[in-house]
Design a protein around this nucleic acid. Structure first.
Length: 144
DNA sequence: GCCAACGTTGGC
DNA sequence: GCCAACGTTGGC
């Protein structure tokens, strides 16, 4: 063990949303979101691996193309209420804070430390894991 | 609007 | 089980 941790199971994630469908502001207004509609097995598996209080970066795809804020998992996976198909699950998310500065994709791609980031390497996946070190770098940029 | 990168479907 | 055809996502 190289690093003692208060939350040994805490993991880090990125979720993507097209802002004209569901934006960060929509999320804040709702105060809590059922993260519904994921229909991709890999993204579903990531949802199922989320634990309570895991931290989640909120990314605007298509328009904006930037990380805008931080959320956390407030309910672990359960069946997606928008379908009868038992393969699909949701989690519940709550906003934690809007970042003082967004982190644009172009900024991420220009950073040599972030070349392995899942968001860069698997750009089509809507729910992505990331490493603690990458999370720290991204939050650092958001607070520069 | 184009296209790369995937994922899914279905014929064989 | 392979692979061609097709659909979707999302960056550019």
């Amino acid at each position: 063990m190289d690093e003692p941790s208060v939350e040994p199971t805490l993991k880090y994630w990125i979720v993507k949303s097209e802002p004209f469908k569901y934006s960060w502001d929509d999320f804040v207004n709702e105060k809590r979101s059922v993260w519904e509609g994921v229909r991709n097995y890999q993204a579903r598996n990531n949802l199922m691996a989320m634990h309570l209080n895991d931290l989640v970066l909120f990314y605007h795809s298509n328009e904006g193309k930037e990380i805008v804020g931080l959320a956390r998992v407030v309910r672990e996976h359960y069946p997606d209420p928008t379908t009868d198909d038992s393969r699909w699950v949701v989690v519940d998310l709550e906003p934690v804070e809007r970042f003082p500065k967004t982190v644009p994709l172009a900024r991420i791609k220009a950073d040599s430390r972030l070349q392995e980031l899942s968001l860069v390497r698997q750009s089509r996946l809507s729910v992505l894991p990331l490493h603690r070190a990458e999370f720290d770098i991204l939050v650092g940029i958001a607070y520069e």
